[in-house]
Amino acid sequence: MDWIGITVAALRASVGPVAVAYALAGLGLNLQFGYAGLWNYGHVVAVAAGAYGAAIPLEAGATLMVGVLCGVAAALVVSLFLGVAALRLRLDYLAIATIAFGEIFRQVVRSNWAEPVTGGVFGIQQFARDFFDLNPISEGRYGWGDFSFDHRSLWLMIVGWTLIVIGVLAMYMLVHSPWGRTVRAIREDEQVARSLGKNVFFVRLQSFMIGSVFGAFAGVLLAFANNVNPDFYSLILTFWVYTALLIGGIGRVLGPVVGAVVFWFLFQWFDGFMQSSIAEGWYGNLLQTTDAGPFRFMLLGLILVLLVVLRPQGFFGDKDEALLDAS
């Protein structure tokens, strides 16, 4: 078995454009779930709103700036609507409301009815030319051996990692400000916050919407990287971002970034490992090559379970800061 090849492929995935998008989405989810304690199971809505919000005007010929702003604005509008409606609910109801809303969003954008605008099941392609025109890197592959990226991926990664650096700094300042303190206090006990004169609903709405802006940037980046396809934005995406977040550690500023990198490393490594080991006949007739995909997802599900149960603070976290533990 080609251990090095598998590992290098996994390393490549762990810093690639999709991992970057996961990190950005995770930053937003971390604010909502980790700091504000909002049970948001529909984070995919913000990501999809960002992707479609940018892709639709760009395809219609808008400039890059307008497109990106439209993506962010779309996420803000959608999260404002969802937040105003759902943040008054108890938190377990919020979970159900957001997950349902995520599925509604996906089904509507992929419908025939919406096809003239959203491209229906086919999605939207070939709208990111302006973005790649800005690419200063000349065509070719860059890197060492198998650990290399083409100029498009590299451009996406440069922009993406820059966004992450900015995002992490912005998030650090947010959560270490008095505003961030209030957000965390509300997570701990909303009644106490109310008794001390804090407008719980408003602060929650703020954190919900800011989290969605991060999701929107993730969506825009994903759209540039992979075009826009409605079925990519199923509710499952939310839970992979959760898994990544749990790996990195909830309620830690760098948690989602570390988590996304490790998640995509594991994801790709499991894939390579399963493909090779099945091809080499390790499991006899039990598994076929086509089972590698499902098996990898199963392992990630198992990681999600074991993380929550055994290491709620994440792979690298400190037990005292575990947010998921006994309430």
Binding site: S177, P178, W179, R181, T182, R184, A185, E188, D189, Q191, V192, A193, L196, G197, E321, L323
Partner: peptide, 22 residues
């Protein structure tokens, strides 16, 4: 009802009504 995962100081500061940075 202590806000258990905030420090004691944070518990206090949070309660203030005059938080400019809130």
């Amino acid at each position: 009802r202590a806000l258990t995962r905030l420090t004691v100081m944070e518990n206090m500061l949070f309660a203030s009504q005059q938080q400019f940075g809130e």
